[in-house]
Design a protein around this nucleic acid. Structure first.
Length: 431
RNA sequence: GGAGACAUGGCCGAGUGGUCGAAGGCACUCCCCUGCUAAGGGAGCAUACGCCUUAAAAGCGUAUCGAGGGUUCGAAUCCCUCUGUCUCCGCCA
């Protein structure tokens, strides 16, 4: 959510920044609501002040045993107008809040302008794609060859976009998650968390998934719950649960930065992505991710973003998977982000790089929704900055390992860094 | 699932219809005193928003005592609903 004060004072530059990311700010609606708000709020508070002072005088008069009928008569007619005015003000404020909740974050000045993924800026590459002297299989075929990836079984259980992992591949998946979590906690100073996978609507509003992206979420109800009962939502990423841990808190400056991590499943209905990546393990309704979240001081949040990208890169480097780093353009960023780097890993079967991590600084966008603040030197509460990044997406890392480490004999070599997590195993044999 | 108790400011805790945004204590900040890492005295110390203002401050006003609704001229205080916490019983991994 953007700063309402800023919109009141300097709306034009803000609107221009939003335009850069392809968002048309509803200027007319905003100004109409602002004008209505101003007059109704002033009138409401005026009426409230009249009532309050009269009530106070009634109290004082009664204490002295004086007759209060004259004062009562003063406020007798007030009730209806006050009530109507309060209701109207509440409506206006609700509409304003709804309008603001649908407005994305403004891009940081260092973000390149652009309309789509084509305009993203490649920042650097790491590693050299391996030269294969045999026909490269994609991860589905590699997975099938070691009897480790079964989409038909998953379809029977749940439908499309689910997978069953088996044997060495299932273990590899677990090893990857454990390796990532250990790296982020032991080398990069993140505090490990285990969090709920089901969260309420306020939580999702805090990080920006609601109200605008309801269709991308899965929701559940308690057995026997009525239609009107509150739903819980399956988290689309543990960014949601980790970031909201500090919702409503006023932190001490010395607590910052907080570095939080968790390994959780993520659930996405991917409502807008039908037809994309329908084959394989790339785009699933359920996938695991190790998430990094930082609650940072505004002065150092961009430095923290660069570090966080490094924390994600460290995983790919340890696994010796070639990748590149992209700086997303204004038009390709997520709703709450002010600046985003994507990491893309090399997938030889697709002969291209595919997204495996996304690291964003949301500045105060989420903090304002969550009312998460810290106390500055003067003791005044100020909004924190929040950052999140994948460190990494476990499922896609599994895909990258299967493809990059496949052998001519249909076995899969286990990256050295993972071997301790696989009981010393060095390869997954063909079935 | 059943029975009961509770929810107040950074923390503890008083407050059952009226000068209550809220006593007192702790913590914190400033000042004074004290020749010493102690004690004492004084003052300050919630958040958000509106109006005013070039801006800030000051000032004035509004809202907030778990959340939402209701009664009333007036609600932390009374009524209803919800959420959460604690204790006991049941069930359960």
């Amino acid at each position: 959510m953007l700063d309402l004060q800023l919109l009141r004072k300097e709306i034009d530059p803000v609107v221009a920044r939003l335009k850069a990311r392809g968002f048309d700010f509803p200027m007319n609606d905003f100004q109409a609501l602002e004008a209505a708000r101003k007059s109704v709020q002033t009138r409401t508070e005026e009426l409230q002040a009249t009532r309050n002072s009269a009530s106070k005088r009634i109290g004082q008069a009664k204490a002295k045993g004086e007759n209060v009928e004259a004062i009562m008569a003063e406020v007798a007619g007030l009730g209806d107008e006050l009530k109507a005015s309060e209701v109207k003000l509440a409506q206006i404020q609700e509409q304003m809040a709804a309008l603001l909740l649908d407005v994305p974050n403004t891009p940081h000045e260092s973000v390149p302008p652009g309309k789509s993924a084509d305009d993203n800026l490649e920042v650097r590459r790491w590693g050299t794609p391996r030269a294969f002297d045999f026909a490269v299989k994609d991860h589905l075929d590699v997975g099938a060859a070691v009897a480790g990836l079964d989409f038909e079984a998953a379809a029977k259980l749940s439908g499309a976009r689910f997978a069953v992992l088996r044997g060495g591949v299932a273990r590899l998946h677990r090893a990857l998650a454990a390796f990532m979590l250990d790296t982020q906690t032991q080398k990069h100073g993140y505090l490990e968390h285990y969090t709920p996978y089901l969260v309420n609507a306020e939580t999702l509003q805090g990080t920006g998934q609601l109200p605008k992206f309801k269709d991308d979420l899965f929701s559940v109800k308690k057995g026997g719950a009525g239609a009107d009962e509150a739903e819980l939502y399956l988290i689309p990423t543990s960014e949601v649960s980790l970031t909201n841990l500090v919702r409503g808190d006023i932190l001490e400056a010395k607590q910052l930065p907080m570095r939080l991590t968790a390994h959780t499943p993520c659930f996405r209905s991917e409502a807008g992505s039908y037809g994309k990546d329908t084959r394989g393990f790339i785009r699933q309704h359920q996938f695991d991710k190790v998430e990094m979240v930082q609650i940072a001081h505004p002065d150092t949040s961009y430095q923290a973003l660069e570090e966080m990208v490094g924390h994600a890169e460290a995983i790919l480097q340890a696994l010796e998977l070639p990748y590149r780093v992209l700086l997303l353009c204004t038009g390709d960023m997520g709703f709450g982000a002010a600046k985003t780097y994507d990491l893309e890993v090399w997938l030889p079967a697709q002969n291209t790089y595919r997204e495996i991590s996304s690291c964003s600084n949301c500045e105060s966008f989420q903090a304002r929704r969550m009312q998460t603040r810290y106390r500055d030197e003067k003791g005044k509460p100020q909004l924190v900055h929040t950052l999140n990044g994948s460190g990494l997406a476990v499922g896609r890392t599994l895909v990258a390992v299967l493809e990059n480490y496949q052998n001519a004999d249909a076995s899969v070599t286990i990256p050295q860094a993972l071997q301790p997590y696989m009981g010393g195993l060095t390869r997954i044999a063909a079935a």
